[in-house]
Simulated scan of single mutants.
Amino acid sequence: MSGGSVDEEAKPDFSKKFRLDFETLLKWRRDVRRFRRDPLPSGQLDHLLHLADLAPSVGNSQPWRIVIVESLEKRSEVTACFEAENETAAKTYQEDRAVHYRQLKLSGLKDAPVHLAIFSDEDPEQGHGLGRMTMPETLAYSTVSMIHTFWLAARAEGVGVGWVSILDPGTVAEILQVDDSWRLVAYLCVGFPEEEHIDPELERVRWQSRSPLETRLFRR
């Protein structure tokens, strides 16, 4: 993936404090499900989206397409889609795990003041196809890179983000009436967190703890 270049004379010198602060930012980047309903200050969302747009992308294609879902009717339809898919998912679990699943809070759709539907254009003119002919999925990977950039930028300003993945992509695309070439990558809830926790919620409610890096590290 390609990103912006920095003139050698202007190359930043990231201090030890900055590096420690960045590590703290990564640790505090949580998937938020509990939001306060008060809106973001005027201009803050636009600022965060401009920061996110600095993310790298394959062929410099910037394939992300961001839909700000303001319509209460469309939000309600997305929420109904989530509830239907969540019920389907619940039925795949058995006994205690099924009970546990139904107790989880898996979205902030009804409280978050901002809803963002993030799509990836699967055939963007920008970039002229560079870098994606053998791996077209790099367009979606680029969009995820933008999402993570947005997430970190938001968290640095005290704003929380929650990724709602229990949705049918086709249904969401139909609700929002987007171009047929757009692929849903994420539906994000955005707002100020009701609570602040450094540990993941799924770890606190004993669904799944994090595991050591060594379990995912291989050498060949």
Rank of each mutant, 00 (worst) to 15 (best):
E83S: 08
N86V: 00
Q177P: 00
C81M: 04
R210Q: 03
S145C: 13
E9G: 15
F150N: 09
E195M: 04
E122I: 07
T143A: 03
E122H: 09
L54N: 08
H50M: 05
A89K: 10
G131M: 13
E87K: 05
V58N: 02
A154I: 02
L40Y: 14
Y187W: 14
V6K: 14
A52M: 03
P12D: 06
V6M: 14
L54T: 11
L213V: 11
P193M: 05
Y93C: 01
K16C: 06
S42R: 13
Q208N: 08
R216D: 00
N60E: 05
R19N: 12
G4A: 15
R19I: 10
P41W: 09
Q126T: 12
R216G: 02
G162E: 07
V144W: 13
W151F: 05
D7W: 09
R216A: 12
V190S: 10
T215E: 15
E203D: 12
F18E: 15
A153Q: 01
P200Q: 03
R33K: 11
R132W: 15
R33H: 10
D46F: 00
T143P: 09
S142H: 08
Q94D: 14
D46N: 07
F35K: 04
V114P: 11
L26Q: 11
A84D: 13
G191Y: 02
L49W: 08
E201A: 13
K16D: 14
V58F: 03
G162A: 07
P113I: 05
R220L: 11
S120Q: 11
L202G: 01
S76Y: 02
D31F: 04
L40H: 09
E157I: 01
G108F: 08
I198R: 13
I175V: 13
P63E: 06
Q103L: 12
C189M: 02
N60R: 11
T88Y: 09
D96C: 00
L213D: 00
Q208L: 09
T215Q: 15
G127P: 13
R155N: 14
